[in-house]
Design a binder for these strands. Structure first.
Lengths: 108, 108
DNA sequence: TAAGGTGGTCATATTTTTCTGACTAATTGT
DNA sequence: ACAATTAGTCAGAAAAATATGACCACCTTA
């Protein structure tokens, strides 16, 4: 099940894969929350009350594979896990901003 | 690190809709081709040999509704139809370029 | 020792998206 | 008249994405 090998290369359109990774269900919201600080699984589940474990798990994994998020195991007393934007993820913030500008400008 | 308030309702993500409109199947390719010049239905169908009428029809309609494409009926001898990027659609080109830059830069 | 929180997986539904093939209707070319 | 091209629509099937609920292992607190 190594998704890396079985990936259909979106030949011809380089950004197709990234667009899909960004637009899957819950992903924009996850991104938005991650932009505000590191995420933890159960907390995220509570912040997105209509979502579910499975979908969030898949979304986080795919965003991690796309190198938008970095997963860190925090080796502390109660040992937990954090997801935060990678450098690539942070670079995406500007793209989102530009996208939002296009969206809001009717005379674009 | 802004504290995570878990009672925050996830107010609508403004770009979510646009992201979905841009990432649906064949849409990135359609966009790419539209950026090179006006499109015609059957020609598009031939340029995307793995696609199909129905999906292209839906994609074009949705991109038109999202105001990325403009549909024009050309009142000429054999009377045909053209799809071309709207001003908003053209504004998206820069966003795509930036997206591509993020994608290509491993140290982003 | 039991209860509750952590961060998940798994098999199975359900829902949404995409594809297939048949069909339409107007126009042009042979 | 007949075939082909234009630009689609429609119903139904197949495939993909998403949701549900059960379960798991580890750790901490009461």
């Amino acid at each position: 099940m190594t998704t890396l090998n079985e990936n259909n290369p979106p030949e011809g359109c380089p950004i197709e894969g990234l667009l899909k990774t960004l637009s899957g269900k819950w992903k924009p919201q996850i991104f938005q929350l991650a932009a505000q600080g590191p995420l933890r699984f159960n907390s995220l589940l509570r912040q997105l009350p209509q979502s579910n474990k499975q979908s969030l798990s898949v979304a986080l994994k795919e965003m991690e594979e796309a190198e938008l998020l970095v997963k860190t195991i925090i080796q502390q007393k109660p040992l937990h896990i954090e997801y935060e934007l990678s450098s690539k993820g942070r670079a995406m913030i500007e793209v989102f901003r530009q996208l939002e500008a296009v969206l809001l400008n009717p005379t674009a």
